[in-house]
């Protein structure tokens, strides 16, 4: 596993949860918004809890939007991180990073929102889920979802089926929180760190 892991610092991170999860794997991550340090890291994690428009405004104001899409090393967006990697979000009608062509939409109000708690992931495909069984439970908290598309590598159903994880080239995203998903989440994080 690589030792040089950077966690993107910005205004929509409860980064401590991710930092602690990495520490449990024996890794001391670097939490930074410095483009040079992000480019040099072996792995980059892009966490996120918050609101899409404010997050994008912040990333653009520091030029981080262009830095993130240009990165070549394995990159993992979590929760809002995944949503910001998509093309557009209904939250604040925001143009996002556009790494994935999928769009992010608000759940229709047919059940409780946010989708909060443990739900299953299915149709797993990608090295991110190596050794992970179909139908394991992971922890979600979100009111918006990425639609299913060509980059979908895990599916979850709540109100409707959506992308629980996406993958394109070096970019990975999980709508769920691997850092809060028990031993399953730890195994997924280890898979990412081993890419």
């Amino acid at each position: 596993m690589s030792s040089n892991v950077a966690v993107v610092q910005y205004n929509a991170g409860n980064t401590m949860s991710v930092v602690c999860a990495l520490k449990r794997q024996g890794i001391e991550p670097l939490v930074t918004d410095d483009p040079q340090l992000l480019k040099r890291a072996h792995k980059v994690i892009f966490p996120g809890v918050g609101e899409a428009k404010a997050a994008m405004t912040y990333l653009r104001s520091r030029g981080l939007d262009e830095v993130l899409v240009s990165l070549k090393q394995p990159f993992l967006g979590i929760c809002l991180g995944l949503q910001l990697m998509c093309s557009r979000s209904e939250e604040g009608n925001t143009k996002t990073l556009g790494i994935f062509p999928e769009e992010v939409k608000r759940f229709p109000p047919e059940d409780k929102i946010p989708h909060m708690g443990w739900n299953t992931i299915e149709d797993l495909s990608s090295p991110l889920f190596r050794g992970i069984h179909e139908g394991v439970y992971v922890y979600f908290v979100h009111g918006y979802y990425a639609a299913k598309g060509n980059d979908t590598i895990a599916r979850t159903s709540y109100i409707l089926p959506f992308s629980a994880a996406l993958h394109k080239d070096n970019f990975y995203g999980t709508q769920f929180h691997p850092e809060k998903s028990g031993t399953v989440g730890e195994a997924i994080l280890r898979n990412f760190l081993s890419l």
Partner: peptide, 8 residues
């Protein structure tokens, strides 16, 4: 707690 627990 945060360092030692892997659930919310």
């Amino acid at each position: 707690v945060s360092l030692n627990l892997n659930i919310p």
